[in-house]
Structure formats: C-alpha cells, structure tokens
Simulated scan of single mutants.
Amino acid sequence: MGLDALGLSFGPDFNPMRILGFIKLFKARKTDLVVVNVGKDMRIAGIAAKMLGIPVVHRVGLAGDMRNTYKVRLLHKWIRPRILVPCEQIKRGLLQELPYLKPEEITVILTGKEPAPSPPATVHSPLRFISTSQLNADKGHKDVLEALAELKKQGYAFEYHIVGTGRIEAELKDLTTSLDLDDRVTWHGFQKDVRSFLRKADVFLLPSHREGLPNTLLEAMAEGLVCVARDVGGVAEVWPNSVSDLLLPASAGPHCLIAILMGILKTDEYSILNQGQHFWSEAVSNSLQAMTQQVERFFSERGTQN
C-alpha cells in the first residue's frame, strides 16, 4: 500500500533503550501524533511521545483490552491519551470497567468498509449461506450446523460455505460429518481475499456469542448480502432497522436460528434481494471513505493539542 513500516521488538515493559529509540525515531520523523494499540505500545512508545510532548491516541478494540490495574491507571493519568473505539458498546464497557475514565476522553468512529458498486442482482439456487469468522467456540458455528441439519431433514436445499480456520476446526468438521452435512458444507480454509467468497454467496451468518464491531459482518453488508447475526457487542449499531427480524437476541438458541433460516429459504428471490439492498445501503452510509474522513478530522484535531 506504499506505507512506511518498521518491524521492532519492544522487549520488556518500560524498556529504556527502546523508549530512547522511539524518542530518536519521533524526532527524526517529526512525528505529530502517536497512535498506540496494545498496552505495551503505551508503556514504551506512549512514554516516548509524552516525553516529547507529542499527543497520543489509544485505539481500543474491546473493552476487556484495558484492565483496571495500577500500572494502567498511572500511565493514563500521566500520558492522558485520547481513546478511539469502533462502537458505542465498547465505550460503555470501558466506562463501566475503568471508572477513572471520562466520557469525553473516548471517541467513537465506526469501522468502515468500501461498499461494492452495487448489491447483488441475482440469487443462487440452491441458496448459499456463508460464514467468514475464525473457527472458535464463541463464533457460534455449532449453532449454525445444528440448525442446518434440521433444515436438511425437512427437505430444504442449501449450501454452507465456511471461510477461515481456528481452534475448533477439527471438532466442527467432525460435527458436520455426524450431522450428515458433508454434502452441504464446503470448507475454504484461510483466505486473503475473503470478499471474493462473499460475492459468491447470498446469506451471511454470524451467530457469535461475543463481538466488538465485527469486520466480517461489515464486509458482508458492504457486498449486499442478507445478514443474520446475534445482537451482541456493537452489531445493533450498524444493523438496518428495516430488517430487525434477522437480528437474533443475544441469548437466542438454535431453534430461533432455525426459524429465521427457514423463513429465508421460503422467501422469494425478490424479497432476498430487497433485504440485501437494505444491508448494502447501510454499509454505504458507513463507508470506508466516510469513516476515514472522520478519523482524519479526529487525528488532525488531536495532533494540534499539546
């Protein structure tokens, strides 16, 4: 992408040699603003920035990423970073878990994805479901497989494409076999170009039990897929009100998922395309370009503060 990047080993927290190295680096590059991600960034690069009077932004992806420890509290009080989060749910979580934070210290800018030029114009036969999450227990793949097994027993035709790898991949494949779904499920493994697989599907499934603001959902919406997900994390913040019936309650079990998927399988092509249009339109309003402009304004304002 033409970006200048350096791979560095940070070493232990508060590493004086690495802090000195960042001070020299920031001076040489005339750095205006330092953005840190994990705590170790703050405990080395954040300190170097503070010593030079450079403003710091701490980008936090999940509320649990910051813990209420003496070390974290002390550094926050000294460095005074502005915190950037991708959804309101994470902001609420931070304020609850870290009572020393103030609401005005946390800025919310949604993650943006570049929308496809237009939503799909056709629907596949049989209908193609897809999931592109890591194959970990909290992502809810088991619920999907159990729901699809019941739908197969009832005579419904469909395909289920799974993109990704993870800790329970072998377990999920064994479950697929035991549920007699091997003829319906295709495993694609790790893929760099996930969106090319989304373009070949119709319905995106994300029954996760825990999320922040999932990139996988945003990518599927940007391609105009019909989406089905649990109401966890920041999912509801980007979900179109017009298709609220496709958003599962956080505590929903497999039977709720079966009902929604059965309804989609019974739906005519026009209705499926119309639903996808709603998701795509929402993605357009929260596009990568729009969110990048918000980030640029935020960084510019922060970079002028001392």
Rank of each mutant, 00 (worst) to 15 (best):
Met1Pro: 04
Met1Asn: 08
Gly2Gln: 12
Gly2Val: 04
Leu3Arg: 10
Asp4Thr: 05
Ala5Phe: 14
Leu8Lys: 08
Asp13His: 07
Asp13Met: 04
Asn15Met: 01
Pro16Arg: 01
Ile19Ala: 00
Leu20Ser: 00
Leu20Arg: 01
Gly21Ser: 04
Gly21Thr: 01
Phe22Cys: 00
Ile23Tyr: 01
Lys24Asp: 05
Lys24Ser: 05
Lys24Ala: 04
Phe26Asp: 02
Lys27Ser: 04
Ala28Glu: 09
Ala28Trp: 08
Thr31Cys: 02
Val38Asp: 12
Asp41Asn: 12
Arg43Ala: 14
Ala48Gly: 09
Leu52Ile: 06
Leu52Asp: 06
Leu52Trp: 06
Ile54Phe: 08
Val56Met: 06
His58Cys: 04
His58Asp: 12
Arg59Leu: 15
Ala63Ser: 08
Ala63Ile: 02
Ala63Val: 02
Asp65Leu: 12
Tyr70Met: 05
Val72Gly: 04
Arg73Trp: 13
Arg73Thr: 04
Leu75Gly: 02
Lys77Met: 13
Lys77Ala: 15
Ile79Gly: 02
Ile83Gln: 02
Glu88Thr: 02
Glu88Asp: 11
Gly93Ala: 05
Glu97Gln: 09
Pro103Met: 07
Pro103Tyr: 08
Glu104Ser: 04
Thr107Arg: 12
Leu110Glu: 08
Leu110Lys: 05
Thr111Ala: 11
Pro115Glu: 13
Pro117Arg: 05
His124Asp: 14
His124Gln: 09
Ile130Asp: 05
Ala137Trp: 15
Ala137Asp: 15
Asp138His: 13
Lys142Gln: 13
Lys142Arg: 08
Asp143Thr: 09
Glu146Tyr: 13
Glu146Met: 09
Ala147Ser: 11
Leu148Ala: 06
Ala149Asp: 11
Leu151Lys: 05
Lys152Thr: 11
Lys153Arg: 09
Tyr156Trp: 05
Phe158Arg: 05
Val163Asn: 03
Val163Tyr: 03
Gly166Ala: 04
Arg167Ser: 10
Arg167Asn: 08
Glu169Arg: 01
Ala170Ile: 09
Lys173Glu: 12
Lys173Gln: 11
Leu175Asn: 03
Thr177Trp: 06
Ser178Phe: 01
Leu179Glu: 02
Leu181Asn: 00
Asp182Gly: 00
Asp183Tyr: 00
Trp187Met: 00
Trp187Lys: 00
His188Gly: 00
Val194Met: 03
Val194Cys: 03
Arg195Met: 14
Ala201Cys: 06
Pro207Thr: 07
Gly212Glu: 07
Leu213Phe: 09
Leu213Arg: 04
Ala220Ser: 07
Ala222Pro: 01
Ala222Trp: 04
Glu223Gly: 03
Cys227Met: 07
Val228His: 01
Ala229Phe: 10
Gly234Asp: 04
Val235Ser: 01
Glu237Thr: 13
Trp239Cys: 06
Val243Leu: 06
Val243Lys: 03
Asp245Met: 14
Asp245Ala: 15
Ala252Phe: 08
Gly253Asp: 15
Pro254Gly: 14
His255Gly: 09
Cys256Tyr: 15
Ile258Leu: 10
Met262Val: 06
Ile264Cys: 10
Glu269Gln: 08
Tyr270Asn: 10
Tyr270Lys: 12
Ile272Ser: 06
Asn274Phe: 11
Gln275Ala: 09
Ser287Tyr: 02
Ser287Lys: 02
Gln289Thr: 13
Ala290Phe: 03
Ala290Leu: 05
Thr292Pro: 00
Val295Trp: 15
Arg297Gly: 10
Arg297Ser: 13
Arg297Ala: 14
Phe298Glu: 10
Ser300Tyr: 14
Ser300Phe: 12
Gly303His: 06
Gln305Pro: 00
Gln305His: 03
